[in-house]
Design a protein around this nucleic acid. Structure first.
Ligand SMILES: Nc1nc2c(ncn2[C@H]2C[C@H](O)[C@@H](COP(=O)(O)OP(=O)(O)OP(=O)(O)O)O2)c(=O)[nH]1
Ligand SMILES: [Mn+2]
Length: 368
DNA sequence: CTGAAGCGCCAC
DNA sequence: AAACGTGGCGCTTCAG
């Protein structure tokens, strides 16, 4: 009917909830206006009404715009003379010890293959990407002393896959899709970092009662996790900070004693999260140093090119594939920590692509 | 014109 | 009413 700016949440809201008569499902945090975020648009999308079809198109428009404006355009504009981007990693910015990355941020590149695949090694070379398996769940198992969780990992189990099957009522041999496994990942970390029944219900379209049951059963299955959570909060209240296994501290005073419950409860969740998130990063950081040192000592052409929290990426000639895998596995196995956190490695010609029936796969298997 | 706030959304 | 955590960044809007 009329012209307006799709990127303006205010203008969009008046059209969607005024002209098109869609129901207001959610308010924004600061101003209390009608929210037009993805969760709202998705709820409205199901319908055959004009508003429903509009929301579907809008979600697609948002995604395309996000990819173009936030990732593709900057990736091209920020290339240096070597045709690569060189993000700035800040090692003393985050409260948990993780690195931050900017200019461009290389740590939030979409998983969408169309986007990831623009990042490539030099011609003729390959990329080996190694990602810690269930990184923070293993750190948690260690810190909480949750034997049941430790046994799952020791026997090669995948907690995210198991949680998906358990919560969504699938059989033991059901293989979740990547998206389904991501759902379970969010649930696992949500629960252990203090999500509410309301939050679970919201995210998974469940009753709040149902959600509470999921949370209760989770802590029943892993009681030491609940105990660890209480212990972290108690420690933070008494000492004003928490500390991870590598000795890294996060200060939580005065929030942890705040009279404002919103502030205080947030600090309590931070008390639980910080030592775990910090452990996963520090573990990776130690391994990174060893991978770098070992690649050098072997006189290889391989070079580490980036890291994303619990992952590292190495660029190297294809003939170095086997030794690079060996070096990375050994480095991650060598970190001084009560439990090993292994990596899953894959070698590819472009970031985000698979190596199925390709040269890289052969090179991995043939141990060239 | 610049900077900040608000919203929204990508990753781990 | 809000109660998973850690980040960076684009756009719109508004104050100066
Ligand atoms: N609190 C919180 N932490 C997250 C979330 N997603 C990822 N993380 C943290 C915890 C993960 O262990 C870590 C690395 O992310 P990954 O995507 O590699 O997941 P993870 O290592 O658990 O599983 P993986 O076996 O690699 O698929 O980042 C989340 O939704 N909430
Ligand atoms: Mn991982």
């Amino acid at each position: 009917g009329s012209d307006f700016n799709l990127n303006s949440t205010a203008q969009l809201g008046s059209v969607l909830f005024g002209e098109l008569g869609a129901p207001i499902l959610k308010k924004t945090k600061k101003t209390g206006r009608a929210s037009v975020d993805a969760s709202v648009l998705e709820s409205l999308s199901g319908k055959k009404s004009k508003a429903g079809r509009f929301c579907e198109s809008l979600l697609h428009y948002r995604y395309i715009g996000k990819m173009q404006m936030t990732y593709l355009d900057p990736a091209i504009a920020l290339r240096w003379e070597d045709e690569r981007v060189h993000p700035t990693y800040r090692s003393a910015l985050t409260v948990t010890g993780r690195l931050s990355s900017a200019g461009p941020n290389i740590q939030n590149i979409p998983k969408d293959r169309l986007i990831r695949s623009i990042f490539v090694p030099r011609p003729g070379w390959v990329l080996t990407e190694s990602d810690m398996m269930s990184a923070e769940m293993r750190a948690l198992a260690s810190q909480a002393g949750e034997q049941k969780l430790k046994r799952i990992f020791a026997s090669g189990g995948d907690i995210h896959t198991m949680t998906f099957r358990q919560v969504f009522g699938k059989s033991e041999d059901y293989e979740p899709t990547q998206d389904e496994r991501r759902l379970a990942k969010t649930l696992n970390f949500g629960i252990v970092y203090g999500i509410s029944a309301f939050g679970v219900a919201q995210r998974y379209d469940m009753d709040e009662d149902e959600a509470q049951t999921v949370i209760n059963q989770y802590f029943q299955a892993f009681p030491m996790v609940a105990r660890f959570m209480r212990g972290a909060v108690r420690f933070a209240r008494k000492r004003g900070y928490v500390r991870n296994k590598f000795g890294r501290k996060r200060r939580l005073y005065p929030d942890i004693l705040s009279g404002e419950s919103v502030i205080r409860h947030r600090a309590e969740r931070q008390a639980v999260n910080a030592p775990i998130q910090a452990d996963a990063w520090d573990y990776n950081a130690v391994a990174i140093r060893r991978v770098g040192a070992t690649l050098r000592s072997y006189g290889l052409q391989a070079r580490m090119v980036m890291t994303v929290h619990d992952q590292i990426m190495v660029e190297h000639p294809p003939e170095e594939t086997y030794i690079v895998h060996r070096i990375i596995d050994a480095a991650f196995a060598s970190v001084e920590y009560p439990e090993q956190i292994p990596v899953e490695s894959k070698t590819v010609s472009r970031w985000g692509e698979t190596n199925e029936s390709k040269l890289e796969k052969l090179l991995e298997e043939l141990r060239v």
